[in-house]
Design a protein around this nucleic acid. Structure first.
Length: 765
DNA sequence: TAAGGCACTTAGCAATTACCCT
DNA sequence: AGGGTAATTGCTAAGTGCCTTA
């Protein structure tokens, strides 16, 4: 199907951790072997693309180039090197309206919601969601599907269910924000059991209607957040020295000092910026006297504090079982009290109900603010969001909330403003909750809609490579990258506030190199930049000729620190995408390409003859292909080499064992040949079985080793959790009769309960 | 139309827990 | 039992994208 041929390209990317970043390019080479399998396809694609090149367009290209040059001269005569200035340059091109009649969303405020996942297509296969064998669509079709819409096959709602649902709604909508009814509302008809009042067994929210008015809930009640433990001053014997002299710190200064002391072993504390930021903030907490005595961080001695905390954590490990149990019980109690809320008649798990404790900010990568003090959050900083008529959470005695509001257009329960970036933090529900699940489902449905029109979009952006307008060419090439390489959109960031990282639209000239010829390949682009979380993206990849030519054009007369796409930003790109498909944004491509890759790879790699471990290996490899595509890396586990060795030892042992037992089999065969009696025959059989068993065990171990080795620097979790339509995995499990536990752990099963319940073995993304 | 605010998703690593072996 | 490793969970930073405001 569409896009298949592109898949192999995804394998090419490899990368390594930032920190040692640019020095270690070679490192990437040894990963290359992983991609061997796909060489052939790559070849195929190459030919395909070069065939499709035309020569026309050359001249127009040159003209464009000149024109753009002109423009540049005029607009900012000097060779301003800085990207800031580039921003000013966009505009003056002709506005050429794009003619795609774009159906207006019926609800302008964007809150429009449907029952079931958002724009649920009325595709037949979309609907296999019912636990019952027959499909019963819970969805209503959207009336605004453009292109990609096939004749809609609207199924009638299961009468009973529909009625019931409607009733539920009516009940509640009348009096809005009604008190939660004591009776739990659970699938009444189904199972015919009365709901257990406590754990209303597994609510299937995905079988219910969704609000259409933009409200996220009708009733919300919770107990508020759990605050960080108050600071406990150090015992007297733990001393602090500055310049060799002991100083008894005031509690506020001491608290901040302990933050530093706790991190002493970390590399962070050796970094200049970290130390500078820390010291500056620390001094703010000092008394005047302390301030005058402590003027140089280098003269501060935190060792006793550090030792104290190490001893403390040691002691914690040594605690008796009883003590540990007690702590566990206490935690459980807090979880029960604060870890759940009541939302629209259902008890739902809260994601993070604890307020972040104070400490030193640790950014990722080269963060200008590392080491700054993250201040303690007090009730006075907290905004509570809940139903007007719910039992409001009480602030701790003697305090008050900053604000109590009742906004059901948002999903958060608690928020506060953090002091490092000034951004807002939230307490929200767990991924297993209805409110998160619906959104997740909707995300995959959007990606599936993209699948239906992606070829059209690809044709279009290839076409746009020939546009007379620079901004259109840039947009088209950027989109090509986003599609082909699954790059992130790349919003602008405020300089100096965060680490210098980029995504597609914010790529700079210095982040790519062009090679018209490289070894046996043509039009190779080399990417090397830091992406989200300062993870390095490094990739050398051949691109289509016309894209390459455009890139050359974009680079002309630019300095390394200039924007590659100086006439583009994410908002322009997304506006364009929105016109091409309802709900389309740059990030949908990542979801789409990730999911489609998983599906294809599963199809390609799973062999019916493989045993269970073999199939799991295939699954992990398919998952891995996606992780590589999305550049989801991890630091190799500290104990990696060792654990590999251990496994190898096991394998060696197993091999010896196998050799022995093969020998035994041989002897027993010989015995049998000699005696021909029943007993020896049986012995042969047993031996044969043993050999077989050991062989299998050996194979499994080897498979495990391969899997682990291949996974050394690759993180599978992120894609599994955020990019892969869970229904693909569920379907795969059903198809090969593999239990879902092999693929999803408990948390994952909870998050994807909707998919596990609704996907059948024939689900197609 | 740029800048900033806000809400929500995505991300890697640290801490904790589960599990296995001796 | 306990010690070490692997798997899971928790934490919170860092993105995306939409909306509002100046």
């Amino acid at each position: 199907m569409s896009g298949d041929h592109r898949n192999p390209d995804y394998q090419v990317n490899s990368g390594s951790k930032t920190n040692d970043s640019h020095k270690h390019k070679d490192k990437h080479k040894d990963k290359e072997h992983r991609h061997k399998d796909h060489k052939k396809d790559k070849e195929r694609e190459k030919t395909k693309h070069s065939n499709s090149e035309h020569r026309e367009g050359r001249d127009s290209e040159k003209k464009l180039r000149d024109k753009e040059k002109e423009k540049q001269k005029h607009s900012n005569g000097s060779s301003d090197k800085h990207r800031e200035k580039q921003k000013e340059k966009r505009r003056d091109e002709k506005v050429k309206p794009i003619h795609i009649d774009k159906p207006k969303r019926e609800n302008e405020n964007g809150y429009a919601r449907e029952k079931s996942p958002p724009p649920i297509k009325s595709e037949p296969e979309d609907n296999g969601f019912d636990p019952s064998p027959k499909q019963k669509p819970t969805k209503r079709e959207r009336d605004d599907e453009e292109f990609d819409c096939k004749p809609k096959k609207v199924k009638k709602e299961d009468e009973k269910k529909a009625k019931k649902r409607r009733q539920d709604y009516d009940d509640e909508e009348e009096e809005e924000d009604i008190k939660p009814k004591k009776k739990t509302k659970v699938k009444k008809g189904m199972e015919g059991k009365k709901p257990k009042k406590e754990e209303e067994e597994k609510w299937k929210w995905w079988e219910e209607e969704r609000a259409t008015d933009g409200s996220k809930w009708r009733f919300l009640e919770h107990k508020g957040p759990v605050f960080a433990l108050p600071y406990e001053p150090l015992p007297l014997h733990v001393r602090f020295f500055c310049d060799g002299k002991q100083i008894k710190l005031s509690p506020p200064a001491e608290e901040v000092a302990t933050f530093f002391a706790k991190m002493l072993d970390h590399e962070y504390t050796t970094k200049d910026i970290f130390r500078k930021n820390f010291f500056k903030d620390w001094r703010k907490e000092m008394t005047p006297e302390e301030k005058s005595k402590i003027t140089d961080l280098n003269k501060c001695n935190f060792n006793e504090m550090s030792e104290h905390f190490k001893a403390q954590s040691e002691a914690r490990k040594q605690m008796s079982k009883d003590e540990k149990l007690k702590i566990k019980e206490e935690n459980e109690r807090i979880l029960q009290e604060y870890g759940f809320c009541l939302m629209d008649n259902h008890k739902e798990r809260i994601g993070n109900f604890r307020i972040e404790p104070p400490g030193l900010f640790r950014g990722r990568g080269d963060h200008p603010k590392m080491g700054m003090l993250k201040r303690r959050i007090r009730p006075e900083d907290i905004i509570i969001n809940c139903s007007k008529d719910s039992k409001h959470p009480k602030p701790p005695a003697g305090t008050r909330w900053k604000e109590l509001r009742h906004d059901n257009k948002v999903t958060w329960l608690v928020s506060w403003t953090e002091n490092i970036q000034g951004s807002i933090k939230y307490i929200m529900l767990n991924p297993s909750s209805r409110i998160k699940g619906e959104k997740d489902w909707q995300k995959y449905e959007t990606a599936r809609r993209l699948k239906k029109c992606v070829e059209r979009l690809r044709t279009q952006y290839r076409d746009d490579w020939k546009s007379k307008e620079m901004r259109i060419r840039q947009r088209a090439v950027a989109l090509y990258f986003i599609d082909k390489l699954a790059l992130r959109a790349g919003n602008e960031k405020e300089e100096g506030e965060t680490a210098d990282t980029v995504g597609c639209c914010s790529l700079r000239v210095e982040h790519i190199n062009l090679y018209p010829k490289m070894d046996d390949q043509e039009y190779v682009v080399e990417f090397d930049f830091l992406g989200k979380d300062s993870i390095r993206y490094y990739n050398k990849i051949p691109v289509e000729k016309r894209a390459f030519k455009n890139l050359q054009l974009f680079l002309e007369n630019k300095q390394p620190e200039d924007d590659l796409f100086d006439r583009l930003n994410t908002s322009i790109l997304n506006k364009h995408l929105q016109e091409l498909m309802d709900g389309l944004t740059a990030k949908v491509f990542r979801t789409y390409n990730a999911s489609i890759t998983l599906q294809q790879q599963l199809k390609a790699l799973t062999s019916p003859d493989d045993n269970l471990p073999g199939k799991i290996l295939s699954y992990n490899r398919a998952n891995r292909a996606v992780a590589v595509l999305c550049n989801h890396q991890r630091a190799p586990p500290k104990t990696f080499e060792k654990s590999m060795q251990n496994l190898q030892t096991k394998i060696d042992d197993k091999q010896k064992q196998l050799a022995t037992s093969r020998k035994q089999l041989k002897t027993s065969k010989a015995d049998h040949k000699a005696s021909h009696d029943e007993k020896s025959k049986k012995a042969v059989e047993t031996k044969r079985k043993t050999v077989q068993r050991i062989e299998e065990q050996l194979m499994n171990l080897q498979m495990q080793a391969t899997d682990r080795e291949e996974n050394k620097q690759i993180a599978l979790g992120t894609s599994k959790l955020n990019y892969l339509d869970p229904r693909i995995s569920v379907a795969w499990c059903k198809k090969w009769e593999i239990s879902i536990e092999k693929v999803y752990n408990k948390t994952q099963r909870e998050k994807f309960a909707w998919a596990i319940d609704m996907a059948e073995d024939d689900f197609e993304f």
